[in-house]
Design a protein around this nucleic acid. Structure first.
Length: 819
RNA sequence: GCCGAAGUGGCGGAAUAGGCAGACGCGCACGACUCAAAAUCGUGUUCCUUCGGGAGUGUGGGUUCGAUUCCCACCUUCGGCACCA
């Protein structure tokens, strides 16, 4: 018998597996495929415990699927472009490329120490020119499809990261940068966008995918669909002034209009008398940050423009106000205001003494415009509304509400508007004023404008010799050689685009690059794609719910338009893990000093123990604070497994009942662990294996089970543990003379007859309180259960000679006697 | 404000087509081994108790023979959205 030394055994098996290509994952049409994917890491320098927490259960489940008979692909790569590399360059004068690729090298080694079944021949690195060539190619394809465009607009800019951000990367009430937490500011810049909004409706359809409810709700909120109508008002100057409203039924109650301060028509409609006031108001609005402007509790401000609009439903002449509670970025940047039935408009009208006309009459009677304390938003019946008077108003949204349906029909009949749907989702801003990203493959020619770089010139390589200075402009702008080029159309002098792409662009299609990471002809090999795609099981953190997970869905839909794939959803199933916190229950960070280093743990306990603990210590979806003492449980488990599997078992006083009990436990455990792997309940799977260990320990001590039952128990335990602790199980499997490799064995099967309990503990209750427990054979008829319960001494005592009023018998479980 | 998730021993967590609350583990206590300690092994471990029992899954109600599980109201924590027309 040897002692368990994972520090020696684990690297030995890792080398063996690699030498044998045990985890090479190639097309095999004889087996069903399973594409398991876990979110790829950013090469920040060290693999931290959070990576282990995300990856090892994903690996265990991929291994389980493999043992279940699937041909499993489980690749790994690096999301290698991004800001930290550039910040390191600025701070420590290391080139981002050097820094990044050194980190990748280091993390590869750390990932190997995990013993995961990654197929390293499928590795993809997004900062490698052979990868970003195709990121650039996709950019061009999106232009061709009309899904990428350049626009000047007020965009979110992080003054700390010195770059613009997508709307999705601006978080929280204070509108801070998702990366660094700095509040963002607005800047007017010409930037590249992807038309994610084209797919707003399709992105709301989750019927093809099995994703967590939470993610679906978050994406649904994010996309923010509203049903209503577009209605065209006309200004007195004759300009069309379209607005969007979810309540077209209240059009007859519109008493004024409001334009956002940035609205292009503001100058046209403003009267000479009001010009100065409007100018002042606009300047003041510009000075306010978004945080101030968008806080709902702030008192409404605004100014009369002096202009008027005509309500198309009744010809009413109503004043146009300018106010910052209307946002330029949503709808048309202008609204009709119906103070009687919208709280925001109501507050505005009361403050500025504007007219209020109720058009919905609640059941309780007519509203009094002068007395109402707040707007009325409930159901009722339409009044003061000409053609739709008398129509019922329900609480429903859109056409389901009879009054809204009537209004929409009226608008369509009179050519005044049409049914419309508006989304909160904005197009994806992908330009970044940073160096360490994939260059946007576009050239600007004075003659031909923005011209995409021809395919044969891809990739547009990042030059290495650049100055890293956080100027708010891309460092590439100051690189003369890069900047100056020729127009692909006329050959005349032209300038390159110097912004790079959002790194979320790189990670939007990485699951496809794994199929053929060295392919120079296409982003991925269609033969590989036909077999492996789409991803069957995706795992990763919830923090990407409205970023990466929306982008990659958009990307796949665009790839469908490109004819590259024939499906609409990139990942059929998704499971989110939680987060490991420090022992102090806080997010791990160097500054807090609560970081758990997996390398040290592996050194001390071995990777198998770390893996087992990470799967055991909490529910995976939930995460929680790390606890250094807790790892002793899994450590003892593996030490016991080591002793049990090496034990030269010889029965002394063989007992049929003990043998039966062990076999039952073995088969019950096989059943339980399989169920738990299916449902990602890894903590209870490990607990079940611990129970089997306990039963085997009893048998070992008592030497009273048959040799066959012992061997069955031990080897089943090794097989069940193999996905969780791949090294120790491989070693013990080999030591027991079983065929290499344990990871190529079939998942064990259970026999229901053996797993079945043959006695049950009957619970005897009186008025719902447990008064006795009686062991009876499984399958005892109800009448006998009842008789046994009534015969109990304790029951007789509590009944005090009285007849029970009622006896409830639950077969195989309990008897409840109602006194 | 709106939407969603969650509240169970000292701790992490089990158990919900309504049926033994606390699986498994950590920790702790006692015992064994040891000169001693660690490790290991064994026993115990929700609380209260006059040792008969009683109380107990955030709080208060309800349905039921029976509720951690279902219903209503509320409290707390976390997450998302929020002047989105």
């Amino acid at each position: 018998m040897s002692s368990y030394t994972p520090q020696q055994l684990e690297p030995r098996w890792q080398a063996q597996w690699q030498a044998d290509g045990l985890y090479r994952q190639v097309i095999d049409h004889n087996k069903p495929k399973h594409y398991a994917l876990t979110m790829l890491p950013y090469p920040s320098g060290d693999l931290h415990i959070g990576h282990w927490y995300a990856m090892t259960p994903s690996d265990a489940r991929a291994r389980y699927m493999r043992m279940k008979g699937y041909n499993v692909m489980f690749p790994m790569g690096f999301d290698a472009f991004g800001l930290p590399a550039e910040n390191a360059a600025i701070k420590r004068n290391i080139h981002p490329q050097t820094w990044t690729f050194a980190n990748i090298e280091r993390m590869r080694g750390q990932l190997r120490s995990m013993g995961a079944m990654f197929d390293w021949e499928r590795e993809a690195v997004s900062a490698d020119p052979s990868y970003y060539k195709w990121t650039q190619w996709f950019f061009k394809k999106l232009i061709e499809l009309g899904l990428a465009y350049r626009k000047l607009s007020a965009v979110d800019f992080c003054p700390n990261c010195n770059t613009t951000l997508a709307r999705e990367q601006v978080w929280g009430d204070d509108r801070h940068c998702e990366r660094c937490g700095t509040p963002v500011i607005k800047k007017d810049l010409e930037q590249w966008f992807f038309k994610t909004t084209d797919y707003a409706e399709e992105l709301l359809d989750f019927s093809q995918i099995d994703w967590p409810e939470r993610v679906k709700v978050m994406q649904t909120n994010w996309i923010g669909r509203s049903e209503g109508a577009n209605v065209v008002f006309k200004t007195e100057q004759g300009d069309e002034m379209p607005i969007f409203t979810t309540r077209p039924d209240t059009l007859w109650g519109a008493t004024f209009m409001v334009m956002a301060p940035e609205h292009p028509l503001v100058d046209t409609i403003t009267s000479a008398e009001q010009a100065e006031a409007v100018r002042e108001y606009r300047e003041q609005a510009q000075r306010l940050t978004d945080i101030d402007r968008e806080s709902a509790d702030r008192e409404k401000t605004g100014v009369f423009s002096g202009g008027y609009a005509v309500n198309p439903v009744n010809g009413a002449r109503i004043p146009i106000w300018v106010a910052d509670y209307v946002l330029m970025g949503y709808g048309f940047g202008a609204i009709m205001a119906v103070p009687a039935h919208d709280q925001r408009d109501f507050e505005f009208a009361r403050k500025f003494g504007l007219e209020i006309i109720p058009v919905i009459q609640p059941e309780s009677g007519a509203l009094d415009a002068d007395a109402m304390p707040e707007s009325y938003v409930g159901p009722g019946v339409m009044v003061n509304s000409g053609p739709i008077d008398g129509t019922a108003v329900s609480d429903d949204k859109g056409r389901k509400n009879p009054s809204i349906a009537a209004a929409i029909d009226w608008l369509a009949d009179h050519n005044a508007g049409e049914e419309a749907i508006n989304y909160r989702l904005r197009d994806w801003l992908i330009s970044r004023q940073r160096y360490w990203g994939a260059p946007i493959p576009v050239v600007y020619c004075p003659e031909h404008g923005a011209v995409p770089v021809p395919d044969e010139q891809l990739p547009v390589l990042l030059p290495e010799d650049v100055e890293f200075m956080p100027t708010g402009e891309s460092p590439l702008r100051f690189h003369e050689e890069f900047l100056h080029t020729e127009c692909p159309i006329c050959g005349g002098p032209a300038q390159r685009e110097t912004d790079t792409m959002d790194t979320f662009m790189c990670s939007s299609w990485y699951q496809y690059r794994y199929l053929s990471p060295n392919d120079d002809e296409a982003p991925f090999d269609p033969t590989e794609g036909a077999y492996w795609l789409p991803v069957d099981q995706y795992t990763g953190g919830i923090e990407h719910a409205t970023m990466h997970l929306i982008y990659t869905r958009f990307f796949t839909k665009a790839m469908r338009e490109m004819g590259l794939v024939d499906f609409a959803e990139p990942m059929l199933a998704l499971h989110n893990q939680g987060m490991v916190l420090g022992e102090d229950n806080e997010k791990m960070s160097k500054s807090r000093g609560n970081v758990v280093a997996p390398d040290d743990l592996v050194q001390q306990y071995g990777a198998d123990t770390v893996r087992t603990y990470l799967m055991f210590f909490t529910k995976w979806d939930q995460g929680g604070p790390w606890n250094y003492d807790g790892i002793k449980g899994p450590q003892r488990l593996l030490l016991d497994v080591w002793d049990i599997a090496q034990h030269a078992y010889a029965p002394q006083k063989e007992d049929a009942q003990a043998t039966r009990n062990l076999r039952r436990k073995t088969h019950q455990t096989i059943r339980k662990v399989g169920q738990d792997f299916e449902s990602f309940s890894f903590n209870t799977a490990v607990a079940a294996i611990m129970e089997l260990r306990n039963t085997l320990n009893d048998a070992k001590r008592n030497q009273n089970v048959s040799a066959a039952a012992w061997a069955e128990g031990v080897e089943s335990m090794l097989l069940l543990l193999a996905p969780i602790a791949p090294h120790i199980t491989e070693e013990l499997w080999a030591q027991r003379g079983r065929p290499y490799s344990i990871h190529q064995q079939s998942w064990p099967q259970w026999d229901e007859a053996i797993a079945k309990e043959d006695t049950i503990t009957l619970i005897v209750q009186i008025n719902g309180k447990v008064r006795d427990r009686i062991d009876v054979p499984a399958g005892t008829p109800e009448a006998d259960l009842k008789a046994a319960a009534l015969a109990s001494d304790n029951v007789q005592k509590h009944l005090e000679g009285k007849e029970p009023r009622k006896v409830i018998v639950v077969k195989g479980k309990l008897v409840n006697i109602v006194r």
